[in-house]
Nucleic acid binder design. Structure first.
Lengths: 336, 336
DNA sequence: TCACACAAGTGTTACGTATAACGTCCGCTG
DNA sequence: CAGCGGACGTTATACGTAACACTTGTGTGA
C-alpha cells in the first residue's frame, strides 16, 4: 500500500501474507493442491480479501494468450430477441468460465466501424448474426474463430453456422393459411440483406408454387413499425384484388401492418389474416393477438456459444437446425 | 512468421520493415512526428498491413494501465430503451477512443453474479442503471469510477448521477389528466426497487394531494405484459368505484393493462384513460396509441458517458436533469 | 574549428500474471 | 547412514507493448 491509490497486485498480497508472488498465484488459481500447505493458503486468501485484491485481467490475458471472452455481434437491440440470444449464450459461457461481450451494430444503417476496436476487449472468438452484415468485412479480416447465426451454411466465410429452422416455420405458416382457405398472399419482407430473410421468401414462394390457383405479391420494408406501416399502406392501395393473407417476416413488421390495415378501414382477421415470426412480447400486446412462429432465442444463443466452444477446442460443432413451432392466435381466420 | 500460426507482433512488423520494435510502436501510435522519417514510417505501415498486424490489446492495456473500455450495466434488454442508451453512450465513447461493453443483468430476477468477472474485460469505469440493483453490491466492491443512471442523487455510493427529469414527466401526466377532468386515479407501479420508480410514486401522490376531491390507489406488477395484465385485472375486479385514469410506470405495463381492460369488456379511453412512460415503439403499436412521456434514451446514454469521462479526467460532471416531454395520443380523454 | 541543436532512430525496461524449473528440509527405507 | 522422494515452497522468465534514456550522424552559428 506504499503507492496509496493504485490497486493492489499479487505481489502486495504476497508481501502481506509473507509468501512469494508465485505462491499467491498458485493459491488463488486453485492449483495449490500438494504445493502449498493449507494454513499458508488460508493466510494468502485472507490477505487477498483484506486488501481487496482483484487480479489484473490485462496481465492475465497477456500471460495466458487467451481471454476467455467472446464477442456477440448482433443488429441493434430493438427487440428482446437478441437480448434472449445473449442470455442463452452468456449462460453457457459462464458455465465454462467465459464472458460474453455484446456488440450491437449501431441502429443507423451506416456500416459499423471495426467492432473489435470498438469493443476494445481482447477476444478468443466471435459469434455473429448474419443480420449484422455491415460488420462482417471487419470480422473476416481477423483470424478469430467464428460462428455465424442464421447464415448461409454454404457461405463464403469458412465459419460454423447455427440455424433456426426458419424454412420449417414458413412451411407451417403457409400450410396453416392454405388450410384455412387462403389463396391470395402478400409477403411483407424485411428490407435487410440476410440469409435468414432470403430463406423466408424462397420457402414461401416454393410452397405456393406447388399449389395451383395461388398468387403471391411481395413488398419490402425496413424492420420498424413505421416502415411496415407505409409499405403496407402502399400495398393495400395498389390496384387489383386485395390479398387475404399477409405473411410478415417478423412480428415487428406485423405490428406495423396492423396499423396500416386499421387506417385502411379494414379489420384483422376478418378482412385480412396476418402472421408474424419471432413470437416477441409484442405479438400478444397487439389486438388481435398475433399468429406467429415461436423461435427459442435463448436456445439459439446457447447453441451458438456451444458451437463456438467446440470450435475453440477443435471439436466439431453440433449438427442440425433448431426446431420452431407455429403459434396460432387470433390474427388468422378463413377468408370471407 | 517463423511460428507460422500465431498472430504477428510488433516485433514481426519491425523485422519486416527493417527497423526496431520501438519505431513500429512510434509510427503506429502516431507519435512519430519528428522522430521517424516519412519514408521509414511508410515502410512500417506497409509492413503492418502486409502482415495483417493487429496490436495485442492485452499487452497494450497492461502497459498503459488503462483499457479505454467502460462497462454499461443495465437491466435485461427487453425493450429498446436501454439499447438506445447504449447507442448514445457508445457514440460518445467512440469519439473519445473508448469502447463500451454491455452487461445486461440476467433476465431472471436472481442476483447477478459478479459482472466484472462475467464481462471479463479490464475496465476503466462503470455506468450502471439503478434498475440493475442486483449488481450494485459487486460494483460497490470495486474502486472503479462509477456513474449511476436514474439513481438517488443523495445515494450512499459516492457516485456521480445522471437523471432524467422523471418527476417533471409525472407532473405533466398528472396535470394533463386533471385538466381533462379526472379525479379517480389508479397507479400501475413497477415491482422493482429503484429510485426511478420511487420518484414516480412520490410525485404522483404529492401532486394529487394538492387537489381536493381526488383519490389514488396503487397496484404493483413486474415489468412485463403478463405481469401488468394480471395485476390490472385484479385491480379492476376490486370493489368500489372504478378509477377513470390509469397511470402506468412505463409503456410495457400500459400494454399489459390494455389487455386487462379489453378482457374486462371496457374500452380505452372511453371507460378508462391510460398513460405510459418511455415512448417506446410499442406505444404506437397498440390501439389506441398511447399517451406517454417521451424520454430521450440516446441523450441519456450520451450524458452518462460524458459524465464518466469527466470523472475519469477529474472534471466535475454536468449538472441538471435531462428534460422529458408529454406526448398526447389517443389513450386519454375526459371521463364519462 | 568546435560546440551544439536536432533529426532519426535503437536499447532497455516495466506493466502483473502464470508457470516451468529449481531448491530445501524432513522422514523413511534399505 | 546414504540416498530418495514428497511436502512446501521460491526464483526466474515470458507474454507484447509503450516510453524513457540514450546513440549516432549531420548541419549550423559563433
Amino acid at each position: 500500500m506504499a503507492r496509496g491509490s493504485t490497486r493492489p497486485t499479487s505481489r502486495d498480497v504476497a508481501q502481506a501474507a509473507g509468501v512469494s508472488q508465485a505462491a499467491v498465484s498458485l493459491v488463488l488459481g486453485d492449483k495449490w493442491r500438494g504445493r502449498v500447505s493449507e494454513p499458508t493458503a488460508q493466510r494468502v486468501r485472507e490477505a487477498a480479501s483484506e486488501l481487496g485484491y482483484r487480479p489484473n485481467l490485462a496481465a492475465r490475458n497477456l500471460r495466458l494468450g487467451r481471454t476467455r471472452t467472446v464477442l456477440l455481434v448482433v443488429p441493434a437491440l430493438t427487440t428482446e430477441f437478441f437480448a434472449e440470444v445473449y442470455t442463452g449464450a452468456a449462460r453457457v459461457a459462464a458455465a465454462h468460465g467465459f464472458g460474453v461481450v455484446l456488440y450491437p451494430s449501431p441502429e443507423g444503417v451506416g456500416p459499423a466501424r471495426d467492432p473489435f476496436a470498438s469493443a476494445q476487449a481482447a477476444l478468443d472468438g466471435v459469434i455473429a448474426s448474419s443480420m449484422a452484415a455491415d460488420a462482417l468485412t471487419a470480422i473476416r479480416g481477423d483470424q478469430l474463430p467464428l460462428v455465424m447465426l442464421d447464415s448461409d451454411p454454404d457461405g463464403s466465410l469458412g465459419a460454423a453456422t447455427v440455424n433456426l429452422d426458419i424454412a420449417d416455420g414458413i412451411r407451417q405458416v403457409t400450410e396453416h393459411l392454405l388450410s384455412l382457405g387462403h389463396r391470395s398472399f402478400l409477403h411483407l419482407a424485411a428490407d435487410v440483406p440476410s440469409w435468414t430473410f432470403d430463406v423466408r421468401a424462397r420457402e414461401l414462394a416454393a410452397r405456393l408454387a406447388d399449389v395451383p390457383g395461388t398468387d403471391l405479391r411481395t413488398v419490402h420494408a425496413p424492420i420498424s413499425i413505421e416502415g411496415a406501416l407505409t409499405a403496407t399502406e402502399a400495398a393495400l392501395a395498389a390496384p387489383g384484388p386485395r390479398p387475404t393473407a399477409l405473411v410478415c417476416d417478423d412480428d415487428k413488421l406485423a405490428a406495423g401492418a396492423y396499423k396500416a390495415i386499421r387506417r385502411a378501414g379494414l379489420r384483422v382477421p376478418d378482412d385480412l389474416s396476418v402472421t408474424g415470426l419471432d413470437d416477441l412480447g409484442l405479438a400478444t400486446a397487439i389486438d388481435p393477438e398475433l399468429t406467429t412462429v415461436r423461435l427459442d432465442a435463448e436456445a439459439f444463443g446457447e447453441r451458438g456459444m456451444r458451437a463456438l466452444l467446440a470450435v475453440l477446442e477443435g471439436r466439431p460443432p453440433e449438427e442440425g437446425d433448431l426446431p420452431v413451432s407455429l403459434v396460432v392466435r387470433g390474427s388468422t381466420a378463413p377468408p370471407r
